[in-house]
């Protein structure tokens, strides 16, 4: 008799990985947008709307709020209960998943996740002044990295671990592509006035991925769109690049059973980004590339779901019964 990994606990590990990564990415994004706006002249047509766009929740936002003011957007992204992707919802779900994974993930990690949830409730709740917000947001990634550290150092690197990493990297790839999207979104606006500030914006994109220092040391040339894109898409050593995330997904999947379908979808996506030439990704082409990427990534998620979590029990399956 040997222990099997239940679909239900694998699924919760996976979603725990996603929610925590999402919380971290969201916190970085909001903090960085605030800081970007401080660097830009007030007369520019930039604002908070792009944050709503990249989370793909424009429709919901428009239903709930009349104007994309700073206050509305920040509330929507951080605290809005009705926004399933809000930071507070991500942390709620992370906590629920962690609590039901006791015995599978290290206790200290569970405690930190609960603490992070409490921290956010205390420090990121309304009313939220700008300074309070900046401080609160900057601590979220710190918490997540500490949790990550506990998991990495103390958790059995078994199937549950692989699902947690799978969740991390799928969400990370998604987040990186969306953050690139913000940069692109802003630049697509037909405002000639924005041109001189393009590098400010790409620097901001790098900062929100914590990648500005790495960029400087790797690329060694002034910031420009095509080299930033190449760095963020193709650099295999940058932990938040698309290539790095997809390679990590592949490594996790290789240690899991029944991985054929997921790997097929993943490898298709890996080939797709390997053959793209970043210098050609201008304007609409970049937009199309990012849309395709996100669509195919959703396809990988769908395959993970179908292969491991929500498969139909109707068919008689050959099982890995070790008894």
């Amino acid at each position: 008799m040997s222990l099997h990994t239940l679909s239900s606990t694998a699924k919760r590990s996976y979603w725990l990985g996603r929610y925590l990564e999402r919380a971290e990415g969201t916190a970085r994004l909001v903090a960085e947008n605030g800081s970007l706006l401080m660097d830009l002249p007030k007369r520019l047509p930039l604002g908070w709307q792009p944050l709503v766009n990249i989370t793909g929740s424009d429709t919901l936002f428009d239903e709930l709020y009349s104007e994309p003011t700073e206050r509305n957007v920040v509330r929507f992204i951080i605290n809005e209960r009705r926004n399933p992707a809000s930071l507070s919802n991500s942390l709620n779900w992370a906590r629920e998943n962690a609590r039901t994974l006791r015995g599978i993930i290290p206790r200290q990690a569970v405690e930190y996740i609960i603490e992070l949830h409490l921290y956010a409730r205390e420090h990121l709740s309304e009313p939220l002044s700008r300074s309070r917000r900046m401080e609160g947001l900057s601590n979220v990634p710190e918490f997540v990295q500490r949790i990550d550290g506990f998991m990495s150092a103390n958790m059995l690197h078994d199937a549950h671990w692989n699902f947690w990493r799978l969740g991390n990297f799928i969400e990370r790839a998604d987040m990186t592509s969306r953050i690139i999207d913000v940069g692109a979104d802003n630049l697509l606006q037909p405002a000639v006035e924005l041109e001189p500030f393009a590098d400010v914006q790409w620097r901001s994109v790098l900062r929100s991925l914590n990648a500005n220092q790495s960029y400087t040391s790797v690329v060694q040339e002034p910031i420009q769109q095509s080299s930033v894109l190449e760095f963020l898409i193709n650099n295999a050593a940058l932990p938040r690049s698309l290539t790095y995330s997809l390679n990590s997904l592949r490594n996790c999947l290789r240690s899991l059973p029944r991985n054929e379908r997921v790997l097929r979808a993943l490898n298709r996506l890996r080939r797709y980004i390997a053959q793209v030439d970043p210098t050609t990704l201008e304007g609409e082409a970049l937009r199309t590339f990012l849309d395709d990427f996100q669509l195919q990534l959703a396809g990988v998620h769908e395959q993970v779901n179908k292969s491991y979590f929500d498969f139909k029990p109707g068919r008689r399956q050959k099982t890995g019964d070790a008894s």
């Binding site: 239940l6 239900s8 899991l256 099982t319």
Partner: peptide
């Protein structure tokens, strides 16, 4: 938990795992 188990048409109890159904 209950949701991890499923009874097949063969009247056997299986659990849903990442390896598929296990009796």
């Amino acid at each position: 938990e209950g949701s991890d188990l499923v009874v097949g048409r063969d009247d056997c109890v299986y659990m849903r795992t990442i390896d598929g159904l296990v009796k």
